[in-house]
Design a protein around this nucleic acid. Sequence first.
DNA 1: GCCAACGTTGGC
DNA 2: GCCAACGTTGGC
Length: 151
Amino acid sequence: MAYWLMKSEPGTFSIDDLAARPKGTSQWDGVRNFQARNYMREMKTGDEVFFYHSSCDDVGIVGIAKVVREAYADHTAFDPKDAHFDPKSKRDAPTWMMVDIKFVKKLKRTIGLAELKADRKLDGFILTRKGSRLSVMPVAAPHWKAILQKE
DNA sequence: GCCAACGTTGGC
DNA sequence: GCCAACGTTGGC
């Protein structure tokens, strides 16, 4: 079992939005970065995911979800009307993939970015690495545990 | 709104 | 293959 972190702007799709979906489940579409896509292809059913709110007043980890469907074609890339349309992605050879995740729980409080940056136990975490903009990333087991202990 | 950092594109 | 220009991300 592996651990991951996925970023979302709460103004677009928040942890509450995920919880409100039927069965608390949603596809994770719109990823258009190769490294992030590659990580999604590694995800296995049952893997756990930190849900992170970015570009908002309260930036940080807000909840936990789990992977319920492994990588498949992101069909929004085929739709010319979709904001994330990519003409280079073909139905018979999709460039972009998505997974489905399911709401598990909200944390009792947001574990803020500043707090994550300040924790020496989290050295090496991709999220807090200078200049990192990845929206999907792995979380090492010791890091996962250290973050949970902050709750 | 600003801007640093990064990824992508396209001319050469 | 190089690299400048451009677009995006995302914290502040």
